[in-house]
């Protein structure tokens, strides 16, 4: 299997270790990644708010790049996945949209045809590779209690994205179980992390995060597992700010799923992945992983 890899701006520039973990695990399942000259997906919230046309055209260009190489796109960020998938839906269901976009793409020597599909690493692992295959590769089970957060933009709209059930998502939990983890049921599991309003009203954003994390800590998990770099940053950096704003005491490590997968599979150099985590990982299960209590914040 070969995919055009779409790490997205946030992962490539702020969460490099998560990107690294994806690039580490895929060859183990026979997947090859190709890098193309993608722009930002573009981010569904900000860019689309300004101009729907601009948003859909950027997305059309990105997809057209992959189509030119006859490749499907593998996304790693929920936001990118949503943006590209919704834009593709627009382009595929509204011929006038597609025509308009193609007029612009022609100037770049590109054409949107609608032949490439877009899948997220979540889907690659659960739907394409499967829990059993993953389970079989685990050499170092991680018996920790986790709460999972699939992310709004992987779940909704369910009819178009079809990643998991929008109200009762279970697939990420199953992926965690495959690594020996104990995923806990918690309230507000499908609630937003708050990232969406950070740019317009950061206080509100952290108030949302506080609600979400209050529900999470109720079941006393060891860590949060996510599948989106934006959610990752919100949970990880956001909990410190939330603690400051609302006098809360959140201190939950956050993982991008493939980091845990890489560790559980016993791949080399996984300590480099965890080095940049900002909430210390004080779990015995990770004791032989080199810890760097780095306060350095990638910005």
């Amino acid at each position: 299997m070969k995919y055009a890899f779409f790490p997205g701006c946030t992962m490539a520039n702020r969460l490099q270790f998560a990107e690294k973990s994806v690039r580490m695990i895929v060859p183990e399942f026979g997947v090859e990644l190709v890098d193309l000259a993608f722009t930002c997906c573009p981010e569904p919230n900000a860019v689309r708010s300004l101009s729907e046309d601009t948003w859909v055209t950027f997305a059309a260009r990105n997809i057209a790049l992959a189509e030119a190489e006859n490749l499907d796109i593998l996304t790693a960020c929920a936001g990118c996945h949503e943006s590209l998938t919704l834009a593709k839906h627009e382009l595929d269901t509204k011929p006038e949209r597609k025509e308009k976009a193609n007029e612009i793409l022609k100037g770049m020597g590109l054409e949107y045809k609608g032949t490439s599909s877009i899948i997220h690493v979540h889907q690659l692992l659960f739907d394409e590779i499967g829990v059993e295959t993953i389970s079989a590769k685990v050499v170092r089970p991680l018996p920790i209690k986790v709460v999972t957060h699939s992310g709004c933009h992987l779940l909704r709209p369910q009819k178009i994205l079809q990643v998991d059930d929008a109200e009762v998502p279970v697939k990420l939990d199953m992926l965690c179980e495959a690594l020996g983890m104990d995923p806990l049921e918690y309230m507000d599991k499908v609630m937003c992390c708050g990232a969406g309003v950070r740019k317009t009203d950061s206080d509100t954003s952290y108030a949302v995060l506080k609600e979400k994390m209050t529900s999470m800590v109720m079941v006393e998990p060891d860590a949060i597992v996510v599948f989106c770099p934006t959610c990752f940053i919100t949970f990880e950096s956001g909990q410190r700010i939330t603690n400051r704003l609302f006098k809360t005491e959140f201190k939950l490590p956050v993982f991008y799923y493939t980091e845990l997968l890489a560790i559980a599979m016993g791949l080399p150099d996984t300590d480099a992945l965890l080095a940049d985590h900002r909430v210390k990982i004080e779990l015995p299960e990770f004791s032989d992983t080199k810890k760097e209590d780095s306060e350095s914040i990638p910005t």
Binding site: C152, H153, R156, Q158, A166, M191, C192, G196, D201, V208
Partner: peptide, 12 residues
Amino acid sequence: EWLCAYCLMCEE
């Protein structure tokens, strides 16, 4: 409208 977090819960 600018306070919408674009989580799509309402739409779903």
